[in-house]
Simulated assay, not measured.
Amino acid sequence: MPKRSMKQDDPLEDFKRREISLDGVTKAVHVAGAGPAVIVMTEMPGISPHVARFARWVRDAGFTVYMPSLFGRDGAVPGAEEGAAVFQRACVSAEFRALAANESSPVTKWLRSLARFAHQECGGPGVGAIGMCFTGNFALTMMLERSVLAPVLSQPSLPLNNPAGIEMAADEIKAVRERLERDDLTVMAYRFEGDRFCMAQRFAAYAQALGERFIGRVLPDSAANTDTAPFFSRHVNCPHSVVTAHLIDEAGQPTVAARDEILSFFVRRLTPPS
């Protein structure tokens, strides 16, 4: 994949923008690649060049990427003021439950339908899903859709006001736990040690709820990129975005190792048997 500047807006010209209608709701989805489907859900405040770069890594690993536009300006470098406004709108949107523990965001219903739709289009054993930050826990809720086989939670940050909260109802968590056991599946999750938006209490809550099926990785703060866009510099002043804004794209870096583990996880779970 050619190197692109992370400090310039990304035109996303190598993705096909599609308007996909599911459950009576239409959303723009950027699609690229071939092979089994992986849903890449953007972090706050939108599909930045870093998020698009990660989606291309997934595409180049042999998958069809479906990257829905959930908030923000697609392809934009996250500005401080614009990003803060996007965050504030999302927090009061009916689609999200930013402050509610024990309750899934309504948008996850549409995302589960997207996974089912993508599986029908792409075939293969099933679908992968990765959520980041504001959407981090969505990949776990999507396990209620049987086509989802490879969930990844990157710095899951909701609910914002409860470090030990899980953004799912108790019966949903129970159903996911039962499915993980029944189908011999695992959940991968990543955070930085000093992340103040996704703290140790949240990973402990996941481990208690999911047992050994939850595999949490904690990266040292020293592994985080410090050259970030204005939104992150002003509003996310701690190591946070493991595979996007705070990833250091150099061999041997812990964040690159995390990225490669995620890609290998998708390959292992989604590659059709020979």
Rank of each mutant, 00 (worst) to 15 (best):
A170H: 09
I215F: 06
W57A: 07
R56L: 03
P125Q: 07
S157Y: 00
E261N: 08
L144G: 03
G124M: 14
R116G: 08
A129E: 02
M143Y: 08
M6P: 11
S233D: 15
H235R: 07
Y206P: 03
E193F: 11
I173T: 08
A223E: 13
L70I: 08
P106F: 09
A115K: 02
A84I: 02
P125K: 12
E261K: 01
A28G: 08
S241R: 03
A28P: 01
P272R: 07
H246E: 11
S104V: 07
E95L: 06
G83D: 09
T186V: 13
S93R: 05
V92C: 05
F266Y: 15
P49D: 10
H119R: 08
D10F: 01
P163R: 05
R116E: 14
K7V: 04
V25N: 12
R18W: 05
T255I: 12
L247I: 12
T271R: 15
V187L: 13
S21D: 10
R73P: 03
L149T: 02
Q253L: 04
D221N: 15
V267T: 14
F15I: 05
A245E: 15
E145M: 10
S147P: 07
A175S: 13
S274F: 09
I20C: 13
F138V: 05
L70R: 04
A169P: 02
I130R: 02
L12T: 04
I215E: 15
A200E: 15
F197H: 11
A61E: 05
E95F: 00
G211A: 11
Q8D: 11
A61W: 00
V29Q: 00
H30I: 02
L210K: 01
L12E: 13
R202F: 13
Q201K: 14
H30A: 13
P151T: 12
P36Q: 09
V29D: 00
D183K: 13
E250H: 11
G72R: 01
P11H: 09
R146W: 09
A150V: 07
V40A: 06
F232V: 12
I173N: 03
I130C: 06
R182M: 13
A37D: 05
K109V: 13
A169D: 14
M41C: 11
A76F: 04
T255Q: 14
P36G: 01
V29W: 01
R116H: 14
V218M: 09
G131T: 06
I173R: 15
